[in-house]
Nucleic acid binder design. Structure first.
Lengths: 134, 134
DNA sequence: GTAAGATACATGCACGTGCAACCTTTGCAT
DNA sequence: ATGCAAAGGTTGCACGTGCATGTATCTTAC
């Protein structure tokens, strides 16, 4: 059967869209998998854990709310709550109340947390450089 | 303290690398989350399920081995085994032996599977178009 | 032909995640 | 002041995933 010019164009668009989508999936899977392994092996940290530590390390003085953190690392509220729980159990972060809104909870790095983050940092950057360059 | 020109350049590289990484994470999270919701709501399919159906629908005659599928959709072998199990339980795919290598297992679409895939296709493409364009 | 190693798939298990339910606190309306 | 909805955070639960293991089959070397 014949194909009109418009249909052909729309097919090309579709193919290009799918290619873009698969490229995104490929990149994400490769990078995340590799990072997960190396961070876990060398520093006992998962990818999400590292991302959270990075946000906390960024603005040192500022305290970070749970909800805000959850948004920036694309985790559900509950996932972040437990993640912070794990980090706290490992002595890497501390929870503290915020006095002006007593519903809120602040998370901040402990010295051990900062140390662990800084140890893991070069590992992560190097892997990113390898895998995102192509 | 002073910063040499080389250090400054390396800092810029680092920032750019991190920006690229976060952009990847952002895009992936947004797209995957939205897709997951809409595919689940409207077609009772997860993102991975849809991806597998798409691979199966692509070359209709050709039979697909489990391992090959696992690689193309970035799932572990066990994850794919169970995913095919779910699809099979839903009547969307069929497993069949391959006679030349009796370790291997073929997966192929059932008519119901093809129907479900084709029903979900426009939904997925439209969402991709919305979210990947920016 | 047989034994040893490799490959393909399935399954037990531990773990991280999202959703929904819950509790506390806050803000707003009356 | 009081009641009521909304927001922040935690927890019970179900589910999908990866890793390690188990079983069957294929391959290679002797």
């Amino acid at each position: 059967m014949a194909t009109t010019r418009e249909e052909a164009a729309s097919l090309r668009d579709d193919d290009q869209l799918v290619a873009q989508w698969r490229d995104l999936l490929d990149r994400h899977a490769r990078t995340t998998c590799a990072l997960e392994k190396v961070l876990q092996d060398r520093h006992q940290l998962g990818v999400s854990e590292f991302e959270v530590l990075e946000r906390l390390a960024a603005c040192d003085k500022e305290q970070h709310r749970m909800q805000g953190l959850a948004d920036t690392v694309h985790l559900s509220q509950s996932a972040l709550s437990r993640l912070i729980g794990r980090l706290e159990a490992d002595g890497l972060v501390m929870r503290s109340m915020c006095s002006d809104d007593r519903r809120g909870i602040f998370a901040c790095l402990t010295p051990a947390g900062r140390e662990r983050y800084e140890a893991a940092l070069p590992t992560q950057r190097q892997l990113l450089a390898e895998l995102l360059s192509d």
